[in-house]
Design a protein around this nucleic acid. Structure first.
Lengths: 138, 138
DNA sequence: CAGCGATAGGTGCATATACTCCTAATATGA
DNA sequence: TCATATTAGGAGTATATGCACCTATCGCTG
């Protein structure tokens, strides 16, 4: 099953997560949490469902992933205009944590990109996007 | 953070896992479990640590991932010659479950491979291998 | 052969992931 | 406008993931 797309991607995800998490460790953030904060920083306050759509994470998983960040005071969750929605907002403390983690992320990222070569890295990102689009059809 | 290698791979892993799990559903196996059984079928009985090395999964995670498969009677775990080790073996029932899941896996796999194109698929697998090797240096 | 480092594995803990089923609020349309 | 479908979210359950720390066994070496 060496050619299984899914297993290969999952395997790579585990390997690369371990690398990033290890390097990010001093920041106190995991790569999942870092990515979440980064999305909030760039997209601004948004609902839980919207965050899930952006990150390709199930709605209910998002709810749970947000919890440790709330506990650490990095984000807040409040009711939106639409009373059904809950709006997630980056706190100053969250913005600070993100800024502190950024150079560590860059370190991990550089290691992979340089090891892989820029061209190959670009190809990989494009291929992964294609896979995501494919998987999410219908 | 759209260019984050780690986030992109994780995102793709989620998307593609959902696809495979959905298609594999009638077999009662998840893609993680399918991959595990497939490794056992091709490599034969092995220890927990060895399985983890093959699948790039932490030793302790392996222990837990094996549990539902034992409960379903698809594998057995027994002490090895070396009394420290525990040897995992595919049962006839496990072999059967794997065989039943295979055509479903092929369906999911075909969909991704054809959607992506053979060439691009090959490139992706090679790039993912490179990423794994990179991440696991040192 | 006694002791010690290395190896195999397990447990506790925390996070990550998603499905099913549930409630509440909104939007829609007869 | 009221009934209904849709949408946003949460809770229960089960699996997936790995780190820190623990025990038991093995192999090696003085």
């Amino acid at each position: 099953m060496a050619e299984c797309v899914c297993s290969s991607i999952r395997k790579a995800a585990r390997a690369v997560t371990e690398l990033y998490d290890g390097i990010l460790k001093p920041s106190g953030l995991r790569v999942t949490q870092f990515a979440l904060l980064a999305v909030l920083a760039s997209a601004g306050s948004t609902t839980i469902t919207r965050l899930g759509q952006i990150l390709v994470i199930d709605r209910t998983t998002m709810t749970r992933n947000l919890k440790p960040l709330v506990n650490q005071g990095l984000i807040t969750i409040e009711a939106g205009q639409d009373q059904r929605t809950r709006v997630v907002t980056l706190t100053p403390s969250g913005r600070e944590a993100l800024a502190k983690a950024l150079p560590l992320w860059e370190k991990a990222q550089t290691r992979v990109v340089e090891g892989l070569g820029r061209q190959r890295w670009r190809t990989l990102l494009a291929d992964l996007s294609a896979v995501i689009a494919l998987a999410r059809l219908e």
